[in-house]
Amino acid sequence: MPACTTEPHLTFDKSVIRDVLNYLDKDLDDKDFIVEKSDKSQRVLTIDGEEISVKEFGGVQKGSQVFIKDDLVSLMRLTKKK
């Protein structure tokens, strides 16, 4: 958890990933990649321009909803971006 910040934070547990994707108008294609609910051929991209599967889903940030992978290197790169 972001312990050193003073603002409250909203997080989600792995158990609600499908719900969260639904809140964000996203769905999964037949290979379990995250896609737009309105266009299932449109896979969403991470900040590094990679497609992302539900297993790798770590979160979202602003910028027409930029998706974040949950692995060490993706997060390491994220710490270097503003």
């Binding site: 958890m1 972001p2 312990a3 050193c4 603002e7 934070h9 909203l10 997080t11 989600f12 547990d13 792995k14 990933i17 969260v20 809140y23 964000l24 889903f57 770590g58 979160g59 979202v60 940030q61 602003k62 909803q65 974040i68 949950d70 060490l72 997060l75 994220l78 710490t79």
Partner: peptide, 21 residues
């Protein structure tokens, strides 16, 4: 949830948030 992101916050899975921190 959408507003949380639109306000410039990162919405993160709990363990991902922990690792990022």
């Amino acid at each position: 949830t959408k507003q949380y992101i639109a306000e410039g916050n990162r919405l993160l899975e709990y363990k991902t948030a922990d690792l990022l921190e």
